[in-house]
Lab assay of single mutants.
Amino acid sequence: ADDEVAKLLVDAYRKNDEDKLEEVKKRYNISDEQVKRLIRKVL
């Protein structure tokens, strides 16, 4: 599931889509710190 979330985050990140990032964060209840970590893992 982590990889799936990471893909969604990276996708939103690449598109610079703040709304999507927020949506994913809320849906999976993850912190900014986790977001950064997941994005770093993929990029």
Rank of each mutant, 00 (worst) to 15 (best):
R27F: 10
E18K: 15
L9G: 01
V24W: 04
N16M: 09
I39N: 00
V10Y: 14
N16K: 11
E23L: 07
V42H: 14
E33K: 07
I39G: 00
L43T: 06
D17R: 05
R37Y: 12
R14N: 10
E23K: 08
D11M: 06
R27L: 13
E33W: 05
R40G: 13
V10G: 04
E22C: 07
E22W: 08
K15V: 08
V24N: 01
D3N: 09
Y13H: 04
K15R: 14
L43Q: 06
A12G: 02
K25S: 03
Q34T: 11
R27Y: 08
R14L: 15
A1S: 12
Y28H: 05
R14G: 05
D11G: 03
L9K: 00
D11L: 06
K7G: 07
Y13L: 09
L9M: 02
E18D: 11
K7Y: 11
Y28D: 01
L38D: 01
Q34C: 12
V5M: 08
R14Q: 12
Y13R: 02
Y13I: 13
N29Y: 03
R40V: 10
L43P: 03
L38T: 04
L43I: 09
D11P: 00
A12D: 01
V5A: 06
Y13S: 02
L8Y: 05
A6S: 09
Y13D: 02
E33L: 06
R37W: 13
R40A: 14
R40N: 14
S31L: 03
Y13T: 02
E4F: 14
K7C: 12
D3P: 09
E4N: 09
L21G: 01
L43E: 07
V5F: 06
D32T: 06
V35F: 14
L9R: 00
L8H: 04
L9S: 00
Y28Q: 00
A12H: 03
S31E: 03
E4A: 10
D2N: 11
E22F: 07
D32L: 04
D3R: 09
K41V: 08
E22L: 11
K25P: 00
E33Q: 07
R27T: 09
A6W: 14
R27A: 11
E33R: 06
K41M: 12
E18L: 15
R37P: 02
V5H: 03
E23P: 01
V5L: 13
E4T: 09
A12S: 03
L38F: 05
A6F: 11
L8Q: 10
E33F: 05
K7F: 11
K7W: 15
R14T: 10
E33Y: 05
Y13C: 08
V42A: 13
D2K: 08
Q34H: 10
Y13V: 07
E23Q: 10
K20F: 11
V10P: 00
R27K: 13
V42Q: 09
I39R: 02
R14F: 15
V24R: 00
A6K: 07
K7L: 11
A1E: 12
D3A: 11
K36L: 13
E18S: 14
R40Q: 14
N29T: 03
K25E: 00
K41C: 07
I30D: 00
K41A: 11
D32Y: 04
L9W: 03
A1C: 11
K7D: 07
Y28P: 00
Y28T: 00
K20N: 04
V42M: 14
D2T: 11
D3L: 11
K36H: 11
A6N: 06
E23N: 04
I30S: 00
K26P: 00
K36M: 13
R37Q: 14
K25L: 03
V10C: 10
Q34K: 07
V42N: 08
D11C: 09
V42F: 15
V24E: 01
K41W: 12
I30G: 00
E22P: 00
R14H: 08
K41H: 12
A12Y: 08
Y28A: 01
A1Q: 11
E22N: 13
I39Y: 02
Y28W: 07
D19E: 14
Y13F: 11
K15N: 14
K15S: 13
D32W: 15
S31P: 04
S31M: 02
L8F: 05
E23G: 04
Q34E: 15
V35W: 11
E23V: 05
I39A: 02
K20E: 10
V42T: 09
K25G: 02
K36F: 10
K26M: 09
D2S: 11
D32K: 03
K15H: 12
V10F: 14
E4P: 08
E33D: 10
K26N: 09
E22Q: 11
R40C: 12
D17Y: 04
I39L: 12
K7T: 08
S31A: 03
K15D: 11
S31T: 13
E18W: 15
D3S: 10
Q34W: 10
K25F: 02
L38E: 02
E18H: 15
R40L: 14
E22T: 09
I39Q: 01
I39W: 03
V35Q: 02
V42E: 10
E22D: 09
E18V: 15
A1L: 15
V42L: 15
E22M: 10
Y28M: 02
A12P: 01
E23Y: 10
K36S: 10
Q34V: 11
V35R: 01
V5D: 01
D32F: 04
K20L: 14
L38K: 02
L21F: 09
L9A: 02
V35N: 01
L21W: 04
K7M: 12
I30K: 02
N29M: 06
A1T: 13
K36W: 14
V10L: 15
D19Q: 14
D2I: 12
V10W: 15
E23M: 09
A1H: 13
E22G: 05
N29E: 05
L43G: 04
K26A: 08
D19W: 10
Q34F: 11
D32C: 07
D32G: 04
D2M: 14
R37D: 14
Y28F: 11
L43N: 05
L8W: 06
I39T: 02
E18N: 15
L21M: 11
V42S: 08
Y13K: 02
V5K: 02
K25R: 08
A12L: 08
K36I: 13
D2V: 11
K7S: 08
A12E: 01
K20H: 05
V10K: 04
Q34G: 05
S31W: 01
K26H: 09
I39F: 04
V35E: 03
D19L: 13
R14Y: 13
D17S: 04
K15I: 09
Q34N: 07
V24I: 15
D17F: 05
R27H: 09
N29S: 07
D19H: 13
S31F: 02
L43Y: 07
L38M: 08
L38H: 03
D17A: 04
A6L: 14
L43C: 10
L21T: 02
R37M: 13
I39M: 05
R37I: 14
A1Y: 14
L38S: 02
E33H: 05
V5C: 05
R27I: 10
N29A: 06
D3Y: 12
V5Y: 06
L38A: 05
E22Y: 07
K15P: 01
D17W: 06
L8P: 01
Y13Q: 02
D2F: 14
I30N: 00
R37T: 12
L43D: 05
D11N: 06
R37F: 11
D3K: 08
R37N: 13
E23H: 05
A1M: 15
K41D: 12
D2H: 12
R37A: 15
I30E: 00
K26D: 04
D3W: 14
S31D: 08
K41R: 10
E23T: 05
E23C: 08
N16G: 15
D2G: 09
E18A: 15
R14M: 15
V5N: 01
D32N: 07
S31G: 04
Q34R: 05
V24L: 15
R40W: 15
D17K: 04
D19A: 15
D17P: 02
R37E: 15
D11V: 04
N16C: 15
V35A: 15
I39V: 08
L38P: 01
L8S: 04
A6M: 12
E18P: 14
N29L: 04
I39S: 00
V10A: 12
V24T: 05
K20I: 08
D32H: 05
E4D: 11
A12I: 04
A6I: 15
D32R: 03
E23I: 06
R40E: 15
V35L: 13
V5P: 04
V10S: 05
R27W: 06
K20A: 14
R14E: 10
D17C: 04
K26F: 07
L43R: 04
L21E: 00
E18Y: 15
D32I: 05
D11F: 03
A12W: 04
R27V: 07
D11K: 04
A6H: 07
L38Y: 06
L21I: 14
L9V: 09
N16D: 07
K25T: 03
K20W: 10
L21V: 08
N29R: 05
V10H: 07
K20R: 11
D17H: 04
E4G: 06
R40H: 14
A12Q: 01
